[in-house]
Simulated scan of single mutants.
Amino acid sequence: MVLANGEEQGALDIGMLCMLKRASLLVQDLIKTEGDAFTLEAVDDDGNSRLHWNLPGVLLNKLIKMRISRDDHLNRLYTFEPYIALMVDQVKAARLCGVTLVRKMRSDRDEVEHYVQQLNSCVEGIRQEARSKSFARKLKNYQRSSNKNHKELTGYVDALFERHSRLLVLRVDLGYQKQHCRTTQAEAKRDREHLLRNKRSNKLFDDMVGYIWKLEHGPEKGFHYHMMFFFDGSKVREDITKALLIGRYWTELITKGRGVYYNCNADKSRYKSCGIGMVDHRDSPMRDTLNQLAIPYLTKTDIYMKLQAIGRGLGKMERPSLKDPRGRPRALLAA
């Protein structure tokens, strides 16, 4: 994705999400296995031995090679979903974070036997913890929290449609240039609050009826926001231009040239259905896409990791009051 200033800005760190998804699935596969991960295999008359790899060992090695447990920066910023957190805790407890396993490497029998015990103990620790009641509670609570956020946001958007017959939906990512990627979470929060506070006196935000924001962090991008803005569609059009102006306002005035933005609406033509742009309250397919694709985009990282934010990491504008039921009824969508 290319920014207005020519730099690239991924809306989400897709590589990181794919790695975490794979890690979660590998842990779940590992839990289902039985038997030793590794056994001792004698290879010569001098007492040298090597590891014999069983399926659990192959899975454990793949997880160790991902280096998730060694990424201190990531571990400080995020809380992992329970399967990944379980693996990270057990790998650290077994002191395997920096281990590199080589299939054909030979060594002294006592040394290899020590590794066999260490590795098998780690796998058994993962299995036992995964079967515990405390882990089941952690998993249930984590999933409930993610589902609650999605339900809350879709309910918020439904309330906007109760009040307005058409919404102009913008999705804009707001962040910082690479040389400013060390911007602190507190500074990013102040910039976001400044942007939203100025809506009261800035004509750019006239007829804005709602917004949603989500704080994220990337290893190269630092702290950044995924934003959705909702404008009264009966009064505002030109979503691409509107999103462009908001992005420029962020970069030029709010961040004083330190910021960057990505105008998602400018790329909406690439998708058959994206849920942004002009959305009519009667357009069920478009609203379904908004609820099933556009809104989950804001909370996608929460499936595998949740940012340990100072204060809230997700927010929205106050929910609108309902329309007076005595007003003129809306037209029904023609069959």
Rank of each mutant, 00 (worst) to 15 (best):
residue 276 I to Q: 09
residue 11 A to G: 13
residue 165 S to N: 09
residue 217 H to G: 02
residue 183 T to P: 04
residue 241 T to F: 08
residue 54 N to E: 13
residue 50 R to L: 03
residue 79 T to S: 10
residue 37 A to W: 00
residue 276 I to Y: 11
residue 54 N to Y: 14
residue 196 L to V: 04
residue 132 S to T: 04
residue 174 L to R: 01
residue 155 G to Q: 05
residue 273 S to K: 10
residue 45 D to P: 00
residue 15 G to I: 02
residue 85 A to R: 08
residue 213 W to E: 01
residue 301 T to L: 13
residue 242 K to W: 10
residue 79 T to P: 00
residue 300 K to C: 07
residue 335 A to E: 15
residue 220 E to Q: 10
residue 257 G to Q: 08
residue 114 H to K: 13
residue 57 G to F: 05
residue 216 E to A: 03
residue 107 S to K: 05
residue 44 D to F: 03
residue 179 Q to C: 08
residue 119 L to N: 05
residue 114 H to E: 14
residue 217 H to K: 11
residue 121 S to E: 00
residue 223 F to C: 00
residue 203 K to Q: 12
residue 180 H to G: 01
residue 110 D to K: 13
residue 282 R to A: 09
residue 88 V to R: 02
residue 52 H to K: 12
residue 146 S to Y: 14
residue 332 L to E: 15
residue 127 R to L: 08
residue 111 E to F: 08
residue 158 D to Y: 08
residue 248 R to K: 15
residue 307 L to W: 03
residue 179 Q to W: 13
residue 38 F to G: 00
residue 294 A to R: 06
residue 62 K to S: 15
residue 310 I to Y: 06
residue 166 R to G: 02
residue 188 A to S: 14
residue 4 A to I: 00
residue 259 G to K: 00
residue 227 M to D: 07
residue 164 H to Y: 15
residue 291 N to C: 12
residue 23 A to M: 04
residue 264 C to K: 02
residue 305 M to Q: 15
residue 324 D to T: 02
residue 7 E to V: 00
residue 239 D to W: 06
residue 34 E to F: 07
residue 103 R to D: 09
residue 300 K to G: 02
residue 88 V to N: 00
residue 208 M to Q: 14
residue 134 S to F: 05
residue 97 C to L: 04
residue 278 M to N: 09
residue 163 R to S: 07
residue 321 S to Q: 05
residue 34 E to G: 05
residue 83 Y to H: 13
residue 101 L to R: 10
residue 233 G to C: 08
residue 147 N to I: 04
residue 324 D to E: 01
residue 149 N to A: 08
residue 229 F to P: 01
residue 69 S to M: 08
residue 280 D to G: 08
residue 16 M to D: 13
residue 133 K to R: 10
residue 12 L to Q: 11
residue 321 S to E: 07
residue 278 M to Q: 11
residue 325 P to N: 10
residue 70 R to C: 03
residue 318 E to Q: 09
residue 282 R to P: 01
residue 22 R to E: 10
residue 185 Q to N: 04
residue 120 N to Y: 11
residue 208 M to T: 11
residue 220 E to D: 12
residue 262 Y to S: 09
residue 301 T to V: 12
residue 1 M to Y: 11
residue 194 H to E: 11
residue 316 K to T: 07
residue 166 R to N: 06
residue 100 T to Q: 13
residue 249 Y to E: 10
residue 119 L to I: 06
residue 215 L to N: 04
residue 127 R to E: 13
residue 159 A to I: 02
residue 42 A to H: 09
residue 121 S to H: 01
residue 158 D to E: 15
residue 236 V to T: 05
residue 125 G to M: 07
residue 280 D to A: 14
residue 47 G to I: 03
residue 177 Q to D: 10
residue 47 G to R: 07
residue 293 L to W: 11
residue 236 V to A: 03
residue 208 M to H: 05
residue 234 S to E: 07
residue 124 E to L: 10
residue 77 L to P: 02
residue 116 V to E: 09
residue 164 H to P: 01
residue 206 D to R: 12
residue 313 G to C: 09
residue 46 D to C: 06
residue 244 L to N: 12
residue 259 G to N: 06
residue 125 G to C: 06
